[in-house]
């Protein structure tokens, strides 16, 4: 294995030369910048502007009247899950070296990731409050 560049400990993973690793490297940076706004925005809206004291079924029903916040949540869900699972894959590759172990780990990450993304998308897309509430809240 080639020695990593001397400065790699001061900043990010060395940029891969090509192939899927390069795509993964770019994805982490582009999705990371998007998530910086989406995830921190979500935390500010839910925990600073609102709080867990006001979040309940009716809160979500008011918030999900239109498609804007559903779209926001879908983008956050999918980008965060793929960003997180891809990060886990990089970590797993650092610690697991036997091909069989890596295969099992990849299976687990893909399986768990697929199930959870599907659950999340189903919840955001299919949620229909029984009665359309009055007023649109955050």
């Amino acid at each position: 294995m080639a020695a990593p560049p001397a400065l790699s400990s001061a900043y990010g993973r060395p940029k891969p030369i090509g192939g899927m690793d390069l795509w993964s490297w770019y994805f982490m940076r582009v999705s990371g910048l998007a998530l910086l706004l989406l995830a921190l925005g979500h935390l500010v809206i839910m925990h600073l502007i609102n709080s867990v004291d006001v979040i309940d079924y009716d809160f979500v029903a008011r918030r999900y009247v239109g498609w804007f916040w559903r779209g926001y949540d879908l983008l956050l869900l999918v980008l965060a899950m793929i960003h997180g699972l891809n990060g886990m894959r990089v970590i797993v590759d650092d610690y697991l070296h036997q091909p069989a172990q890596r295969r099992v780990a990849a299976w687990l990450l893909h399986g768990l990731g697929t199930i959870l993304i599907v659950l999340g998308v189903v919840a955001v897309v299919t949620f229909r409050p029984p009665v359309t509430p009055v007023g649109v809240g955050q």
Partner: peptide, 18 residues
């Protein structure tokens, strides 16, 4: 890793809305 673990739990609790 910490945020990813929370995210997985958060997807499950949000799914209960259905």
């Amino acid at each position: 890793v910490g945020v990813l673990i929370f995210l997985c739990l958060h997807i499950i609790d949000t799914f209960l809305i259905v």
